[in-house]
Design a protein around this nucleic acid. Structure first.
Length: 463
DNA sequence: ACAGTGTTGGA
DNA sequence: CCAACACTG
C-alpha cells in the first residue's frame, strides 16, 4: 500500500489540469487540504468579496470530490506549521502544491520545506500561468519590464503545455483527519447580507468556469470591437475563475486557439498580460505596495496620509457619488457584483488618481476588498499603470477624459443599469447631465479641465 | 566578449 | 522618459 499524499490547495481549486492533484492521485491515497491563513498576507489578506467567492468555490470543489468519494480537509492557521502537523498526523510522504508567486506564498513554501521532517517532501508544480514566471528574459538575460516585448517573447515560446485530464480515481486514506464545516469559517457575510448581488451575478466553481468558457468560445470573435463597450459587455468574465484556479489559462488557450479571429488574438494578449503581471511581482515583490518610480509623493497626492484616514473625496469615489455617471456606474457595479468592466476600471481608476489626486494605493485597497477577482499581481500592476508610477512608459501624463470616454464607448445603457437616479435620461445627456436633470444625483466633484490642469501641475512638481 | 551609442516605440 | 535591441568598434 503506497503512502498518503497531501494536496495543498490554494488558488488552484480545480481537478482537471491540476498538476499537483494529478501527481498526488497517481502516487497514492490523497488528502486534499485547504488552509485558511489570514495573517500571512498582511494587508492583502482576502477581502470581503474574495471570501464570498472562496466559500462557494471550496463548496463546489468539495462536491466534485464527493463524487470521487473524496473530500477537502479544512484547517486554519499558519500554513507551514499547519501542514507540517497534518503531514505528521496522516503520515504523508509528500505534500503536492501548485507554486504561487505572491511574496507571502513564496515565503511559506520555503518555510514549509524547512518545517517538514525527512519522511515528507514538498513537491511544487507550475500551471496557473501560461508559462512559469521567469520563463522568458530579454536578450541580455534580465526579466522584461515592458509588456509588448514580453508578449512577443511569450508568443515565440508558446503554446503552453497540454492540459492534463481530471484524475480517473482518487483514493481515500484509511481514515480522514478532522475538519470543521465550511460554514464554521463564516466566509459569507452575516447580518446585512451584501453578497446577494455577487451570488446573483456569478456561478462558482470548476463546472461553471468551463460553462463560461464554452459560452465565450462563441463570443470571442467580437472581443476586439466589443471589449470597450460597457453596455454590451463582450468580455469573458473569466477573471475570477482564473484567479481562483477553477480553470487554467492553458485550458482556455486550447479551447480557443483555433478561433483565428482578431478577437481571439486580442484576448490572447490579455491572457499574456496576466502572465506579465505575475512576472512583475515575481521580480518586484512589493510592487502592489510601493510606487516603482521615485516621484516625490508628498507633492503628488493631495492627501498623502489618506491611507490612514478616510478622506471624504475617497468616500465619494468608493460609493459612486462623484457626479461623473460612467465612474459612478462602474463603482456601483463593483460594489454590487464584485466585478467591474475592464474599460470602466481604467476610467474609474484614472479618475481617483488623476482627477482627485488620491494615492493609487487607496484605490488598490478598495478594489482588493471589493473584487471577486482581486489578484495581487494584476491589481498592483494595473493600478501602477494607471498612475504612471510603474515600470511601463512614462513619457507623458495620461489623463483619461471620463465624459469623452463615456460617449465614445456608448455607455448609456450601462449607466442606466447601475445609476438608477439617471434611469430616465436620454442617450444624449446621460453622460454629463445638466444640473436641472440630475435630481438626487450629485453634481460633479470637480470639472474635468480644472482637474486635468491640477494633475499635470502635480505630476510636474513631483517629478 | 561586451560596453557604449543610436534607434524605436510604449495596454 | 527609458527599456530593449541592433549595431559598432
Amino acid at each position: 500500500m503506497s503512502s498518503v499524499q497531501i494536496v495543498w490547495l490554494r488558488r488552484d481549486l480545480r481537478l482537471a489540469d491540476q498538476p499537483a492533484f494529478h501527481a498526488a492521485a497517481q502516487a497514492g491515497p490523497v488528502v486534499p487540504v485547504y488552509v485558511l491563513d489570514d495573517d500571512r498576507a498582511g494587508d492583502h489578506a482576502y477581502g470581503g468579496a474574495s471570501r464570498v467567492w472562496l466559500h462557494h468555490s471550496l463548496d463546489s470543489l468539495a462536491r466534485s470530490l464527493g463524487a470521487h468519494r473524496s473530500r477537502i480537509v479544512l484547517r486554519r492557521g499558519d500554513a507551514p506549521q499547519v501542514l507540517a502537523a497534518l503531514a505528521d498526523e496522516v503520515g504523508a510522504a509528500c505534500i503536492h502544491a501548485m507554486r504561487h508567486y505572491e511574496p507571502w506564498w513564496k515565503e511559506a513554501e520555503d518555510e514549509l520545506r524547512d518545517a517538514l521532517g525527512d519522511d515528507c517532501k514538498l513537491c511544487l508544480y507550475d500551471g496557473n500561468y501560461l508559462l512559469p514566471p521567469g520563463s522568458v528574459t530579454t536578450g541580455s538575460g534580465s526579466p522584461y519590464k515592458i509588456y509588448t516585448p514580453f508578449s512577443k517573447a511569450m508568443l515565440d515560446v508558446m503554446p503552453p503545455r497540454d492540459p492534463l485530464p481530471e484524475p480517473d480515481t482518487i483514493h481515500s486514506p484509511d481514515s480522514w483527519p478532522d475538519s470543521p464545516d465550511l460554514q464554521d469559517w463564516q466566509l459569507l457575510p452575516a447580518k446585512p447580507d451584501w453578497a446577494g448581488g455577487i451570488t446573483d451575478f456569478w456561478d462558482f466553481g470548476e463546472t461553471a468556469a468551463h460553462d463560461r468558457l464554452d459560452w465565450w468560445a462563441n463570443e470571442v470573435a467580437d472581443y476586439d470591437e466589443g471589449r470597450n463597450l460597457p453596455s454590451q459587455d463582450i468580455t469573458s468574465r473569466l477573471s475570477p475563475h482564473l484567479h481562483w484556479g477553477e480553470i487554467s489559462p492553458a485550458q482556455v488557450w486550447y479551447k480557443l486557439k483555433d478561433k483565428r479571429s482578431d478577437g481571439w488574438r486580442t484576448f490572447a494578449k490579455e491572457l499574456i498580460w496576466r502572465d506579465y503581471a505575475q512576472n512583475v511581482i515575481d521580480q518586484f515583490p512589493d510592487y502592489p505596495r510601493e510606487s516603482y518610480r521615485d516621484y516625490d509623493e508628498r507633492k503628488l497626492w493631495r492627501n498623502p496620509d489618506a491611507g490612514h484616514l478616510i478622506d471624504e473625496d475617497l468616500e465619494c469615489w468608493q460609493k459612486g457619488m462623484t457626479g461623473y455617471p460612467i465612474v459612478d456606474a462602474g463603482m456601483r457595479q463593483l460594489w454590487q457584483t464584485g466585478w467591474m468592466h475592464n474599460r470602466v476600471r481604467m476610467i474609474a481608476a484614472s479618475f481617483l488618481v488623476k482627477h482627485l489626486l488620491i494615492d493609487w494605493r487607496c484605490g488598490e485597497q478598495w478594489f482588493w476588498d471589493c473584487l471577486v477577482d482581486a489578484d495581487y499581481g494584476n491589481n498592483g500592476v494595473n493600478w501602477q499603470w494607471i498612475s504612471g508610477t510603474g515600470v511601463d512608459s512614462n513619457m507623458f501624463v495620461r489623463i483619461m477624459a471620463p465624459l469623452t470616454q463615456s460617449e465614445k464607448f456608448n455607455s448609456a445603457d450601462y449607466i442606466r443599469e447601475y445609476v438608477l437616479e439617471l434611469g430616465d435620461l436620454s442617450d444624449d445627456c446621460i453622460h454629463d447631465p445638466p444640473d436641472e436633470k440630475r435630481g438626487d444625483y450629485p453634481s460633479k466633484m470637480i470639472g474635468h479641465k480644472e482637474a486635468r490642469e491640477r494633475a499635470l501641475e502635480a505630476y510636474r512638481a513631483a517629478k
